[in-house]
Design a protein around this nucleic acid. Structure first.
Length: 586
RNA sequence: GCCCGCGUAGCUCAGGGGAUAGAGCGACUGCCUCCUAAGCAGUAGGUCGCAGGUUCGAAUCCUGCCGCGGGCGCCA
């Protein structure tokens, strides 16, 4: 039972009774808690439209609803604001309805088939802080979509088919020229074990990639290797298999440590067999054209604000690019996976690329008009100097190192606490969860689209508005419930609040369904992060003011226990939607 | 040059066309014989980049300007 929906319906009815659009009845959480719990501002625009006095309209709305027992108080203020205070009995009913499964939130009536593309690590490259945003935001969006009730697939979309693969092959050839993969006369019976480890790749790739930028000969060799790989040279394919296996294993481990999972572990190479038919099709229907030796698709349209360059489908030498695989992947997602919405959680700097890919998809009829394609842009993570975050040595911080750093901060915090003694094993686990929470919450509390400063101190901070603050609130609820149980008290029916902090906590809880909806519809998990913090804050106030286990009145005590339980469950859900786990104690 | 994004407290950032713009950190003051102080209460700190416009009402929408970042065919 969503309180805002329900109140808006009542107010809509009151507006309709005056022959006004029921949409004016929209009720929102009050911006002035001193004046009311909720407010309806519809009288002002309604007055404008109807040519009437806003206060008259507001008064008529209030008169219409005044006698309903649901309302404790309806009052007019200013030019025509209606301030709403719920009757406590009604407030308790709303809150009680959340004690059921899924907090009483129904899944959407018409689920959509959605795919979220996020993470996108490159084979042969270590995951670094830059992957953090895409991964954490995408993971959270996927979780939110699933909870809302949609059929959502998360896809890692590995970068395993582009130029960097040719570069790595050249890099390995330089170091180990005698391997059978490079001997064109050998076409099968390659070794079962990879000639390189992830550690080797971490050295080979940056080196060769750097040199390819400066040395035309290296670049040319890499270009050729890429082409030969894509055209199926057996030795390269066999070596490539090893590279993919080795680096995926490492990246899966990184994702696992982050608590991130995917439904699909596809890559660019997954669609390789679709590319030729796709290119033929685009050629046949006249969309793909030769241009400077390359194959392009013109996507400019008359109303464009700026010149949209053609999408480069195939290089002059016949090699494929990420534009090629992206178009083919889009086709597969629509045709084979039956997706109705495809969301790309990718750096905002790639906006033009996706605009081109989407246009090709539409133009070529690969994507039906009603399908939704969205580039979920996110901003750049910068270091203190305003440039992409790097270590002092100049390298980009590896994801794994970052995870270790935040876990270390968690361990140090535990060491400071003198109250409880946990086993070393438990401390390690708590520190891991706390560190991840700090990292994820720090990431998700920013709006995804804004660039932001990566500040290690802030990310490893465990006090104030941080992930651990939220975990701590949940741990408090668990601790209280545990001790109550030992003493023989169980959560029971909610009764009307006796103090303001309790009432405020109930009201805060009621916002939950609306916030989740908004986070999904705007694809912005920071709404959930923000709300979870406010809810935890409200709970901590209640906790300070109401000493639950010492309360003498049994009905009140067991009602409070229910409220504690409900808060704990709500926070746990919200944190889960952010991809944050909570330890039993901390 | 054209296009996109950003500019809010000392710092880092929230902010859904609504009333008196918020939080955290940092600074300063209090609160652990009491459910875990990773907490709570309080003080100080703002011409929401600038100028116009739309609106009953603008940090929020529109236009221009300034500043910062980014993108603009054979990388991803």
């Amino acid at each position: 039972m969503n309180v805002l929906t329900s109140l808006s319906a009542s107010f809509g009815e009151a507006f309709a009774a005056q022959n006004l659009d029921p949409a004016f009845g929209e009720v929102v959480v009050s911006g002035r808690p001193d004046l009311g719990q909720f407010q309806c501002n519809g009288a002002l625009p309604a007055a404008k439209q109807a040519g009437r006095n806003p206060r008259d309209i507001a008064q008529a709305v209030v008169d219409y609803l005044q006698d309903r027992p649901e309302f404790g108080e309806l009052s007019l203020a200013g030019p025509g604001f209606i301030n709403i205070i719920l009757d406590d009995h009604s407030l308790v009913e709303y809150a009680s309805s959340m004690r059921s499964d899924r907090l009483g939130i129904d899944p959407v009536a018409t689920p959509r088939r959605v795919l979220v593309d996020y993470g996108g690590p490159n084979v042969a490259k270590d995951m670094h802080v830059g992957h953090l945003r895409a991964t954490i935001i995408g993971d959270s969006l996927t979780r939110i979509g699933k909870f809302v009730g949609h059929d959502v697939l998360g896809d890692a979309h590995f970068g395993d088919w582009g130029t960097q693969m040719g570069q790595v092959i050249v890099g390995i050839k330089e170091r180990m020229p005698d391997l059978p993969y490079f001997n064109a006369t050998i076409t099968d019976s390659y070794p079962n074990d990879s000639p390189v480890t992830m550690t080797d790749l971490q050295e080979i790739y940056p080196d060769i990639s750097e040199r390819a930028k400066r040395d035309p000969d290296v670049a040319e060799a890499a270009r050729l290797a890429t082409l030969e790989l894509q055209q199926g040279r057996p030795g390269y394919r066999a070596l490539w298999e090893h590279l993919v296996t080795v680096s995926q294993a490492s990246q899966r481990a990184d994702f696992h440590d982050l608590g991130v999972d995917f439904d699909l572990w596809h890559g660019e190479s997954t669609v390789h067999d679709l590319i030729e038919p796709l290119i033929d099709q685009l050629r046949t229907n006249g969309l793909a054209l030769e241009s400077d030796g390359a194959l392009v698709v013109d996507v400019a349209e008359p109303g464009d604000k700026m010149e949209i360059p053609p999408l480069l489908l195939m290089k002059g030498d016949g090699a494929y690019l990420y534009t090629t695989t992206d178009v083919a992947t889009l086709q597969m997602r629509i045709d084979e996976l039956g997706r109705e919405e495809v969301l790309y959680v990718v750096d905002a700097r790639q906006a033009l690329h996706f605009e081109q890919v989407f246009r090709v998809g539409r133009k070529a009829g690969l994507v039906p008009p009603e399908a939704i394609l969205e580039h979920i842009k996110f901003g750049t993570m910068n270091g203190p100097d305003g440039k992409p975050f790097q270590t002092r040595k100049g390298g980009v911080v590896k994801l794994r190192d970052l995870i270790n750093m935040v876990a270390q901060a968690g361990l140090e915090r535990l060491a400071e606490s003198k109250v409880v003694e946990y086993s070393e094993e438990e401390q390690t686990e708590i520190a891991r969860l706390v560190g991840l929470a700090a990292l994820k919450f720090g990431e998700l509390s920013n709006h995804r689209q804004s660039d932001y400063l990566f500040d290690l101190e802030r990310f490893t901070s465990l006090i104030g508005k941080t992930g651990p603050y939220l975990q701590y609130a949940v741990v408090r609820t668990q601790s209280i419930l545990r001790e109550a149980k030992e003493a023989g008290w169980q959560p029971d029916d909610l009764i009307e609040p006796s103090v303001e902090a309790e009432r405020r906590l109930m009201l805060e809880l009621l916002r939950t369904p609306d916030v989740i909806d908004r986070a999904w519809s705007t694809r912005a998990p920071n709404h959930i992060a923000e709300f979870a913090y406010e809810l935890a804050q409200q709970f901590n106030r209640f906790y300070e003011e109401c000493h639950i286990l010492r309360e003498a009145d049994l009905a009140r005590k067991t009602s409070w226990l229910s409220l504690v339980e409900l808060t704990g469950r709500t926070l746990t859900l919200l944190l889960d939607l952010l991809g944050i786990e909570v330890p039993d104690r901390m």
